[in-house]
């Protein structure tokens, strides 16, 4: 049994699910659920609908190029059954999925890095601008702390000079 991909959202169409639409030029459109079929009937472009795989890949939201995707491929030649091969494949599946999930996590953290640095910059700027809004006690504390740090550094430099 072949697991096809949905034409609209690119998810897997499991046996017994979904609907096939055959156009008069014999192109077959497979849909995983009525949501995808309805969107197709409304002539929506899957690349412009945000929840589809096509959109997410196009806008760099998902990991697209990875060696773990190479295992899942459309093969038109049926494999001859071999017990050892089947056993090894079954063992490999969870391992590969684990690796893929880790890489996807990494991809997401990499994508979030930019936003985090920007957020930090924004926070620093806000602190600089609106420091007078803080109650005076806190401001005093923060300034004292910085003074202490400066003193330490100065001391260190003096010590360094002495040594020299």
């Amino acid at each position: 049994m072949r697991l096809e991909k949905c034409w609209f959202c690119s998810s897997t169409v499991y046996p017994g699910h979904g609907i096939q639409f055959v156009r008069n030029d014999a192109k077959v459109f497979r849909f995983c659920r009525s949501k995808c079929h309805k969107n197709f009937k409304m002539k929506r472009n899957p690349r412009k609908v945000k929840w589809t795989k096509a959109y997410r890949c196009l806008h760099g939201k998902d990991m697209t190029q990875d060696s773990t995707f190479e295992f899942e491929r459309k093969r038109n030649r049926p494999e001859r059954y071999d017990r050892n091969v089947t056993e090894q494949t079954l063992k490999a599946i969870p391992l590969i999925t684990k690796i893929r999930h880790e890489r996807q996590k990494k991809h997401i953290t990499n994508r979030q890095k930019q936003g985090k640095t920007k957020e930090r910059e924004r926070d620093a700027k806000e602190l600089e601008q609106d420091i007078q809004m803080l109650p005076k006690k806190d401001v005093m504390l923060s300034t004292q702390k910085t003074k202490v740090v400066v003193k330490v550094s100065q001391q260190q430099t003096e010590e360094n000079l002495m040594e020299e």
Binding site: V13, P15, G16, I19, Q20, F21, V22, R23, N24
Partner: peptide, 19 residues
């Protein structure tokens, strides 16, 4: 040979044609 009304298949999915 072609019907626009959807028809269930043996595997539980459905098929629909243009005309």
């Amino acid at each position: 040979v072609r019907a626009a009304m959807k028809r269930g298949r043996n595997d539980g999915s459905e098929i629909q044609f243009d005309d």
